[in-house]
C-alpha cells in the first residue's frame, strides 16, 4: 500500500519534482537566512566613503571611541555644522531626512550595524589605546556607503586578535583571554 502511494517518486518525473521541491525549500532557507544577515534599512543612505574621502577622521563623528565603551552616533547639530553651509543639502534627495530632522528637532533613528550581543561588554577605549585602528575591525570605510561589517563579530575572531596581541606577554594574555574581561 505505502509503496503504491509513494511509488511515483521513483519515476523519473517524480525524481525531478522531488529535486525541484528540495531546491525550493533550500533556497527559501538561504533567502531567509540572508534576510537576517542583510544590512537593515537606514533612515539615510549615509555615504561613509564620501565623508572619509573628504578627509574627515572617524573620531570626528564618533569621538566616544577614544574615551569609553561607546563610539556613539553624531548629533544632528554636528551634521548640520557642515551641511548647512553646503549647496547639496538643499538639493539632494538623500539629505531630505536630515533637513527634516533638523527642522523638527527630532532625532534620526539609525540602525546600528556593528553590534555585539548583550552578554558581551565591549569597550572601545582600550582597543584604541592598544593601537588598534578603526578599520581593523570595521573595515575600510572608503569602500562602502552604509557601514558594513567585514566580518562577523564572534568570539573566535575576538580571541584570535587577543591571542596575537599577547604572544610575548603572559600577564596580558591572562587578562585578554579571561572570560570575565568581556562577559559579566
Amino acid at each position: 500500500m505505502i509503496k503504491n502511494i509513494f511509488g511515483w517518486l521513483f519515476s523519473p518525473l517524480g525524481r525531478i519534482a522531488l529535486l525541484i521541491g528540495g531546491l525550493t525549500v533550500l533556497s527559501l532557507a538561504v533567502w531567509g537566512i540572508s534576510l537576517t544577515q542583510a544590512s537593515p534599512e537606514q533612515p539615510i543612505q549615509f555615504p561613509h566613503n564620501r565623508h572619509v574621502n573628504f578627509g574627515i577622521q572617524c573620531l570626528y563623528c564618533h569621538p566616544g571611541a577614544s574615551r569609553g565603551p561607546v563610539a556613539g552616533l553624531p548629533t544632528q547639530t554636528k551634521c548640520w555644522g557642515c551641511h548647512q553651509q553646503m549647496q547639496i543639502t538643499e538639493t539632494s534627495e538623500l539629505l531630505k531626512p536630515l533637513v527634516q530632522a533638523v527642522e523638527n528637532n527630532e532625532p534620526i533613528q539609525w540602525v546600528p550595524v556593528a553590534i555585539v550581543p548583550d552578554f558581551v561588554q565591549f569597550n572601545h577605549r582600550p582597543h584604541i589605546a592598544a593601537g588598534v585602528n578603526c578599520e581593523d575591525c570595521h573595515g575600510d570605510m572608503t569602500q562602502v556607503t552604509i557601514a558594513e561589517n567585514p566580518q562577523v563579530f564572534n568570539m573566535g575572531w575576538c580571541l584570535n586578535c587577543h591571542k596575537e596581541h599577547s604572544v610575548d606577554n603572559p600577564e596580558l594574555r591572562t587578562k585578554l583571554l579571561d572570560c570575565g574581561t568581556c562577559h559579566y
Binding site: P69, T77, P107, Q109
Partner: peptide, 16 residues
C-alpha cells in the same frame, strides 16, 4: 534595534 542620537549633545555629556 534603533538608536536615536541626541539632537544636540547636552553640556558635560559624552557618548557612553
Amino acid at each position: 534595534v534603533v538608536r536615536e542620537p541626541y539632537t544636540q549633545m547636552p553640556e558635560y555629556t559624552f557618548n557612553g
